[in-house]
Simulated scan of single mutants.
Amino acid sequence: MLEPILVAARGRIIAGVLGGAAGVVVIVLLVLALTPRAGGGTVLVPDETPAPRWAPPADPPVAAVTPGPYGIAGLAEPAWVARTAKATGIPRRALAAYAGAAMTKASAMPACGLSWTTLAGIGRVESDHGRHGGSTIGADGTATPPIFGPALDGDGVARIPDSDQGAIDGDTKADRAVGPMQLIPQTWRNWHTDANADGREDPQNIDDAVMASANYLCRASTGLDTEAGWRRAITSYNDATTYIDAVARAAEGYRTAADR
């Protein structure tokens, strides 16, 4: 079970009115941390190094000559995925999802300017790329065992009464954030997508979850290849300064590692 351990973001809910069919979108981000801890999971520890103000985009992924299986995860060249995974420490299956989602948005909505490193930074902070609590991402992109956040029952966290009868989060009393990108049921219903083309829409699948997050970010802001646009998008995801700093630090670290 995930723990919301950033004091400034503990139990925070960000609501944005995005118009159109999306309506009111609510994201709860239960922030994991950037160092291992005993017994599994991760915790955020103080970092004396000033966080970067934002995460400039990395070079785009190299496109596969022939797209591979699993929808968006097959869009990046396997050699690029292998090389970049080794340089950054991001698991290949998660990296393929981040790259594929960024490539998809670059084609469909180039004004967004979303980089794979931004998605990877969020994935690192949210669930350690689907590895929180001993979970792993399978070849099909699904987290096993499923990843669930704590009950949002108002006890030290935000209060969000059950909205899905437990169908998405397994809890019939209060909502929980789910999957590698930690989306609550209300958010998933607004942004659900079948990004791995398996005929199912599953927030526990990293392709589906990352693509839903990419869609949200690009609706919340454009120009993520600028500081103002990037900060506006991440702030819409979670406005805690410590959260924004953590994502910026992780994303910038991945860009630097990939560029070596």
Rank of each mutant, 00 (worst) to 15 (best):
L2Q: 11
I5A: 12
R10P: 04
G11Y: 06
A15M: 12
A15I: 12
A15K: 15
G20C: 02
V24H: 07
V28D: 09
L34K: 02
R37I: 14
G41C: 04
G41L: 02
V45Y: 03
T49P: 00
P50F: 00
A55W: 04
D59F: 10
D59M: 13
D59W: 04
P61L: 09
P61K: 11
P61N: 12
V65N: 12
Y70N: 14
Y70S: 06
Y70G: 00
G71V: 04
G71A: 08
I72Q: 08
G74E: 06
R83M: 13
A87N: 03
G89K: 11
R93M: 02
A101G: 02
K105F: 08
K105T: 13
A108L: 13
W116R: 06
T118D: 06
I122R: 04
V125W: 01
S127D: 02
S127C: 00
H129I: 02
G130W: 01
G134L: 09
G134P: 03
S135I: 03
I137C: 05
G138I: 03
A139Q: 04
A151F: 01
L152R: 00
I160C: 09
D162G: 02
Q165V: 01
G166P: 05
D171T: 09
D171R: 13
A177R: 08
L183W: 08
I184S: 01
P185Q: 08
T187F: 15
R189M: 14
H192F: 14
T193Y: 00
T193I: 15
N196M: 03
A197T: 09
D198S: 08
Q204H: 14
D208S: 11
A209S: 14
A212S: 09
L217Q: 05
R219W: 10
T222I: 13
E227L: 03
R231V: 10
R232I: 00
A246I: 07
A246V: 09
V247F: 05
E252A: 14
R255A: 13
T256E: 10
T256V: 15
A258C: 10
D259P: 00
